[in-house]
Design a binder for these strands. Sequence first.
DNA 1: TTGACGAACGTGATAACATAACATAACGGA
DNA 2: TCCGTTATGTTATGTTATCACGTTCGTCAA
Lengths: 126, 126
Amino acid sequence: MPGRNQQFVLDALTRSERPMGAYELLELLRQEGLRSPLQIYRALDRLIEEGLVHRIESLSAFALCVHSECTHGRAAFAICANCGRASEVHDPALERVLRRIARRQGFRTKSATVELSGLCEACAHR
Amino acid sequence: MPGRNQQFVLDALTRSERPMGAYELLELLRQEGLRSPLQIYRALDRLIEEGLVHRIESLSAFALCVHSECTHGRAAFAICANCGRASEVHDPALERVLRRIARRQGFRTKSATVELSGLCEACAHR
DNA sequence: TTGACGAACGTGATAACATAACATAACGGA
DNA sequence: TCCGTTATGTTATGTTATCACGTTCGTCAA
């Protein structure tokens, strides 16, 4: 039982082709009666806890998780500076390298942020 | 010739054990006569361009680059949620994996953000 | 049914982070 | 000197996120 606002936010992100900011979501969901940032942030917090949504730090934005069972916190993103799309990547080799880096310095990782910024294939070829 | 404000900011970050926010820097540098956020942000922008400072996305904060020769944009950070320290890591294997991920989808990477959040060794052992 | 409780929700104010727009000063070369 | 460029300063504003408080609603047990 996702909660009404969570469902609104989830639907909006599902329809969007790119990550959305909290205030962008708010604008969109005013139609549904949402009025304050906090309503959005609370919904996002829960969706993130449930692993359904990722926060993209370098955009201060939020994206649907495309991998139903991602251990949340182990996804990488390639974010196009031109078209704004963020493609989510799960890569075992990356996870191994990150674990090794942490291990070497006795670091106990709780979550990881991996974000590549640049041009996606479509935008690079023009 | 670094510019006066850049030098102030650089000195402040050098003295700090952990990444500092822009407004935190501002508070500190009021003693030196700095008055507005923009003075801080401009100095930070230049220091980042020169590769002397990194922006830590997940903290909205800034840290001195400890590797004089970092190709800027290829550093990883392990950030302790308890003590706030951020240790900078340069790892060839990580760079290879990130290049491979980008290559696989034809992504042209301009910069990369890699931030581990968790507990550092000292803070984990208590 | 009632009431106690917790989870979700609503609202206004405010905090924290960042930039726009415009003006002024400092410097170096033609 | 004149010009262009770079660094600087200041006010106002834009953007992102949270606090504090109160209300609604469903569930469960007496």
